[in-house]
Design a protein around this nucleic acid. Structure first.
Lengths: 171, 171
DNA sequence: AGAAGGGTTGTTACAGTATAACATCTCATC
DNA sequence: GATGAGATGTTATACTGTAACAACCCTTCT
């Protein structure tokens, strides 16, 4: 597998790297990596685990910023669309992408698979086109104990594909 | 694959079957399949798609029952633990299990994989130990267009496995 | 019969997650 | 300096889920 997330690493270095990659990514795609978006991304990188929107909000407030929920959710939407972070459905939370490539692309061609610790909320991101049971086995090999798995594919069913009202692009 | 959910079928018949299987399952396991739990299960079977807790509540109220949220969530917890329904994380919603076996066991040994229509919220349940990309391909073969996939495994990370406080059984 | 106890449901209140709607600001461009 | 697009500020509210305690129903034991 090659799950990224639980092994020890140079934390300050990985934050710097990710930040630089995010910047070049946004620059290349003409996306505005504003101070607010940058700060939210940084908070997630520093946390190095899944953080809820209101956890992020709390940090912003500690920063001295009188932020409100929509501000955080907007930044999160931007980062999600840019492929810089992931939403962890199971936790209603967000985590910085651990697999940015050399161009700062987190918007992998692959589907991310996450290993989520229910105790400390740390998140590891596995790569590779594993089977469902293969993921659990690979996780076990790294010392992670899988207790529950979620596999969900969202899209359009055969009937709704024929419905023009449903055709609009997915958010 | 054999995704169950989008093809036409004898709806009244499948509800009756599922209900009978649920009853025998609960009887065998000495679980109380009370009128409230039975009704909530029935609502999900009739809906035949993902229903939020408050959607269910609304139906109960239309029934003339002055139900409150905890009543619905309790019934859902029971049905989840009994393996009769699934929670669809992506939608914060619930769907009756489509794969009860001849003994009324929905608590498969397999990990369920869901195909969720973002337009009509219908849910198909795929079986088999597919790879991530295999799921999308198999879905496409049935006419379902996958736009987004979620793979999440929840459990304990290597560090937290050593922490007694984390050892308590997952709910 | 009465007491005790486990499990289910009723009820009130509230916590946590997310968004609608509209105002304001900033900055590049014309 | 006017315009317009995108970003952020602000208020209010919707949606999802749970804590805590009371009441009820049954079974079991004495």
């Amino acid at each position: 597998m090659s799950a990224i997330g639980f092994e020890r690493h140079d934390h300050a270095g990985c934050i710097d790297d990710a930040m630089r990659q995010a910047e070049s990514r946004c620059k290349a795609d003409k996306l505005q990596f504003t101070p607010m978006r940058r700060r939210v991304f940084e908070i997630l990188l520093e946390a190095h685990r899944a953080f809820g929107a209101y956890d992020i909000l709390e940090v912003l407030v500690q920063d001295g910023h009188a932020a409100q929920p929509p501000t955080v959710y907007r930044a999160l939407d931007f980062l999600l669309k840019a492929g810089l972070i992931h939403r962890i459905e199971r936790l209603n939370a967000y985590a910085a992408c651990a697999l940015l490539d050399e161009h700062g692309h987190g918007a992998h061609d692959h589907v991310p698979a996450f290993l989520i610790c229910r105790h400390c909320r740390s998140v590891a991101e596995a790569e590779g086109d594993l089977t469902i049971s293969g993921l659990a086995e690979a996780a076990a090999a790294t010392g992670f104990l899988v207790e529950r798995q979620v596999v969900e594919a969202e899209g359009l069913c055969p009937a709704c594909r024929k419905d023009p009202a449903a055709a609009e692009v997915a958010a």
